[in-house]
């Protein structure tokens, strides 16, 4: 999952990027409205975390622009403005959620999960595939009742493959969704991740097949 974080305060942006990064999300940070617009037109994101008080281009303008272009990108507004009218205005502009600073990081995570669950998983809480059970909230993976340990990156790749189980996921999309600007995982690194996943999931009744030079596909083993 790749997020764009549009927040002009360096400290908060760093904190959020670090926090979300440790939960396995890839986060790009934009410090101004302009940067955010640029990033949105350059890359594909799964979620936009948007501060309203951005320099150059205001957050609500970005949101309006986004919705005018017909984008369905989920948006969470984070702002210091806590008046009810502000909330209403923000949600009416097309935000999916609205958090007032200072918010609890756990709450932000929960709201992110809720939005992704709805958008990506159609409100399911768990994914079953073969003997594998993926719990979306905790990102825990069970194989036949036993917990299976993964690194954040492995877990992120697995999540992406599971979200499109039975369909081909292009390697490029996978890389892009996992990458943040600082550390773009190479194709090589991706192959290593896939290799580890295959090993850990050998008893799970699922298989990850490769379409060489193009992508991967996860499905129940026959």
């Amino acid at each position: 999952m790749r997020f764009l974080l549009a927040e002009d305060d360096d400290y908060l942006a760093r904190a959020l990027a670090q926090g979300l990064g440790s939960r396995g999300y890839a986060v790009d940070a934009a410090r101004s409205g302009k940067e955010a617009i640029q990033a949105l037109s350059d890359s594909e994101y799964d979620l936009l975390i948007l501060d309203l008080g951005l320099p150059e281009v205001d957050g609500s303008q970005i949101l309006r622009l986004l919705r005018e272009r017909g984008s369905t990108l989920p948006v969470i507004i984070i702002t210091a403005r806590d008046a009810v009218q502000d909330r209403i205005a923000g949600l009416d502009l097309g935000a999916n959620d609205y958090l007032t600073k200072p918010f609890d990081f756990g709450e932000l995570e929960a709201r992110i999960r809720a939005i992704l669950r709805k958008n990506v998983w159609g409100n399911r809480m768990e994914i079953h595939c073969g003997l594998l059970r993926f719990v979306l909230n905790t990102k825990e993976v069970f194989v036949g009742g036993e917990v299976c340990e993964f690194t954040p990156r492995e877990s992120a790749v697995l999540e992406m493959l599971l979200s499109r189980a039975g369909r081909l996921v292009p390697k490029k999309a996978l890389v892009e969704h996992l990458a943040s600007w600082e550390e773009a995982p190479s194709d090589n690194a991706m192959e290593i991740v896939i290799h580890r996943l295959r090993r850990k999931l050998c008893t799970a009744g699922v298989e990850i097949s490769t379409v060489r030079g193009f992508g991967y596909l996860l499905r129940e083993s026959q």
Partner: peptide, 24 residues
């Protein structure tokens, strides 16, 4: 006051984020 609250809330949000990272 609106400005001051904005200015205080943003670093507080950062602090809260770091403190929950610390807890984990």
């Amino acid at each position: 006051i609106a400005n001051a609250s904005h200015q205080l809330r943003t670093p507080l949000a950062g602090l809260k984020t770091y403190s929950s990272l610390g807890l984990g």
